[in-house]
């Protein structure tokens, strides 16, 4: 996976905690934690919409393509 989550940066910029974001978006703390720590393998459009709406940003502000990031999933797996 070369997609890096920048959710922690966005939260720091907005001075929001993960708990606040969870309460505002309705996304569970577990899922937000998976996204924040970079363990997520896929993200739903509905999740992105909720995050972008609450953080007042674009999807590109939350997710970033980094060719140097360590691969979590083998290519062609799934």
């Amino acid at each position: 996976m070369w997609i890096v989550s920048r959710l922690d940066v966005m939260l720091a910029l907005r001075k929001m905690s993960l708990k606040d974001l969870s309460a505002a978006t309705g996304i569970s703390m577990t899922n937000l934690s998976i996204l924040k720590t970079g363990k997520a393998r896929a993200i739903r459009f509905t999740t992105l919409v909720a995050l972008c709406r609450e953080l007042d940003c674009q999807p590109g502000d939350i997710l970033e393509f980094d060719p140097a990031a360590p691969a979590l999933v083998e290519e062609g797996d799934g």
Binding site: L32, I34, K39, A40, R41, R44
Partner: peptide
Amino acid sequence: AKMATEAEFTV
């Protein structure tokens, strides 16, 4: 099993 893992980490 692989799809279940994928689903588990889909947010």
